[in-house]
Simulated assay, not measured.
Amino acid sequence: MAIETLVGTTLAGYTVRGKVGEGGTSTVFRADHATHGTVALKVLREKLQHDKTAVARFLREAQFGARVEHPNIVRTLDYGQSDSERYYLAIEWAGGEILDKYAEKSGPLSSKEVSEILSQICSAVQAAHDVGIVHRDLKPENVMYDPATHHVKLLDFGIAADTDAAPDQRLTRAGFFVGTLMYVAPEALSGELVGPAADQYSLATIAYFLLTGTLPYTGKSPRELFSQLLTQPPVTLNKAKPNLAFPVAVENVVMKALSKQPSDRYPAVKDFSEAFAAAAQTTAMASASIAQSVSGSSSQSAGAMPSGSDGEDKGGLFGKMKGLFRRG
C-alpha cells in the first residue's frame, strides 16, 4: 500500500487521520488509538521494508525512545510490524510547534527565554547520556516547543548511538558522518563514533541560533561549511549580527561549548546548561538594575528607544550603558 493511501485506514490498531511530515526514511501521521489516544505514528517507507540497515535504524530509534524516560522527551508508546508488514512507531503527540519555526517567527529570543528552552533540552539530553545514548542530531527541527506553557519536547532518536555498542554493531560506516552539517560537531566529520561532547556542541549551536537568528559558521555551501568547521573558529556571539550585543558572560559560555576540541568544552551537558542559566540570570539582574537606575530620569526623555533581543537600547542612555554588559 502506498504511503499516501494510509490516511483513512487503520494500521496496527491506529486510525490514520492525516500526514504531518516526512523524512528520508519514514513518514509521520497523526493517528488515533483506543488506548493511547492521539499519537504521532511514524511509518517506515515501503521501499525500505527490506533494507536491513534502514529497518535496524528504525527499530533502534524505538528501543532508544523506550529506554529513556524524561518529561522533555516524547514517550515511545508502541512499535513493531503491522499485519501488512509495515514497520511503525507510535510516540506521544507533542503540542506546540517546531522550535525552528517559532524562532524564525519570534526571534532573536532573549537570553532568559533561551535559558528556559535550553535547560529543558539539556536535561533531556543529559538523561540520554546517563544511559549511554548520544543523540547525534540535535537541532531546532527536532524540538517541539509550546510558547503558551514554555514546555519543550525532544524528538527523533533515529540516528542516536549507543556509546557501549561494539564496532560490529554500529550502523554508520567508518568515514561517514551522520547528523545535520549546520549543527554537527567538528569531530563528527571524521566519521568516528562521537561522544556526549558532540551533543553539547550541537546544543550550543542551537543556543547561538536562538539568540541571534544565525549560525556560528557562514558557509554558503556544504563544501564551504565543511571546510570552515574543520579549519576556522566560529564567529563569536557578539559578532553574529551588528545590531545585537550580549553580555560577556553569555558569550563566554556559548563559545566554550563551541570549542573545536571536545576536551575544551564543559565536562557534561548539565554543566553547560547550568553555566548558561547563571549567565542569563546575571544578564536579567543587570538589565533590571539599569532599568531601575534610569527610571527616575525617564520623564526627561520622550518616546521609546529601540531594543535588541535582551532589551539593550541601541541609542541614548541605554546605548552608553551597553559597555557595562560587555565588561561584566
Rank of each mutant, 00 (worst) to 15 (best):
residue 237 L to C: 00
residue 262 P to K: 08
residue 293 S to T: 02
residue 8 G to M: 05
residue 70 H to T: 06
residue 166 A to W: 03
residue 283 T to F: 01
residue 267 P to Y: 08
residue 101 K to R: 14
residue 320 K to G: 12
residue 145 Y to D: 00
residue 218 T to D: 15
residue 216 P to M: 03
residue 159 I to N: 08
residue 27 T to L: 01
residue 293 S to L: 05
residue 67 R to E: 07
residue 47 K to E: 11
residue 277 A to D: 11
residue 255 M to T: 13
residue 16 V to Y: 01
residue 285 M to E: 11
residue 83 D to T: 13
residue 160 A to P: 01
residue 29 F to V: 06
residue 56 A to T: 15
residue 163 T to R: 10
residue 87 Y to G: 03
residue 300 Q to W: 12
residue 178 V to M: 15
residue 197 A to K: 13
residue 259 S to M: 11
residue 306 P to D: 08
residue 231 T to N: 14
residue 195 G to V: 09
residue 63 Q to M: 11
residue 300 Q to K: 12
residue 9 T to M: 05
residue 116 E to K: 13
residue 228 Q to R: 10
residue 247 P to E: 12
residue 322 K to W: 05
residue 32 D to C: 09
residue 273 S to V: 07
residue 25 T to P: 00
residue 196 P to H: 10
residue 53 T to D: 09
residue 122 C to D: 04
residue 244 L to C: 03
residue 108 P to Y: 04
residue 94 A to R: 08
residue 98 I to Y: 06
residue 220 K to V: 07
residue 99 L to N: 00
residue 153 K to H: 12
residue 93 W to I: 03
residue 66 A to T: 15
residue 42 K to S: 03
residue 237 L to Y: 02
residue 59 L to R: 15
residue 136 R to Y: 14
residue 250 V to S: 10
residue 315 G to F: 13
residue 104 E to H: 09
residue 84 S to Y: 02
residue 88 Y to W: 08
residue 266 Y to A: 05
residue 118 L to W: 14
residue 124 A to W: 00
residue 303 G to Q: 05
residue 65 G to A: 07
residue 223 R to P: 12
residue 232 Q to F: 13
residue 39 V to C: 03
residue 44 L to G: 00
